[in-house]
């Protein structure tokens, strides 16, 4: 286990972009969870999402990185900020927080979860499981085959070809889900039905 930890630490130090982004993401996440005022929490969450988007770029997922910034920071967090401003919470309306022992218990449970996850990851891949070079692939849309060079792996064409070929049914189901959610949100937030 110690060797695996050492291998991962060396791997992180050899990759400064990842090290900085991971540090920013985890730090911003901790600050988000601990801020009392939800506005600051939302802004720290935005910082965390931007760092995660850079991590996606590192993982050869440029399209997902762009979509992540658009959907999470552009749509979801703006919605959060809108709602926070709409509610215009006064300090006394923020409510009480849990007592110190309850918080300690929650942190303890989650630390145990983290140790379990980290331990199993380190045990499963003691060498840090380095990535292989990306190989060019052919993706199919119907009868046509589209060559994806290694540089474009995970790009718009690649994801689009997979999404609209093999995953067309789940994709459409998600679109129905979002329509239902829109109706639900409108009905719930309406003052009078």
């Amino acid at each position: 286990m110690a060797d695996a930890l050492k291998a991962v630490a060396a791997d992180v130090l050899a990759d400064p972009v990842f090290a900085v982004c991971a540090l920013v993401a985890v730090g911003a996440a901790v600050l988000m969870v601990t801020r009392r005022n939800p506005v600051y929490g939302a802004l720290w969450l935005m910082q965390c999402f931007l760092a995660v988007a850079v991590i996606f770029l590192k993982l050869h997922a440029p399209f997902l990185a762009a979509i992540h910034v658009l959907v999470y920071t552009g749509a979801i967090l703006v919605l959060f900020l809108f709602v926070i401003m709409l509610l215009n919470l006064q300090p006394r309306e923020l409510g009480q927080e849990h007592s110190r022992p309850a918080k300690g218990l929650a942190i303890g449970v989650c630390a145990a979860l983290l140790l379990l996850l980290a331990g199993s990851f380190l045990k499963a891949a003691p060498d840090g499981a380095p990535f292989k070079e990306v190989a060019p692939v052919m993706v199919g849309v119907g009868d046509t085959r589209l060559p994806i060079p290694a540089d474009d792996w995970g790009g718009v064409e690649h994801v689009g070809a997979e999404l609209f070929d093999r995953f067309i049914v789940p994709f459409e189901i998600v679109s129905v889900l979002i329509v239902v959610a829109i109706f639900g949100a409108v009905v719930l937030a309406k003052r009078k039905l």
Binding site: A29, P38, I84, A106, L113, A125, G128
Partner: peptide, 26 residues
């Protein structure tokens, strides 16, 4: 890839701390 998985485990655990220890629904 282990470093990415460790990062993901950390983000997940911190989020779990937030869900369990905070009472503000936002």
């Amino acid at each position: 890839m282990t470093k990415y998985l460790l990062l993901s485990a950390m983000l997940f655990s911190i989020g779990a701390v937030g869900v369990l220890s905070r009472r503000n629904l936002l």
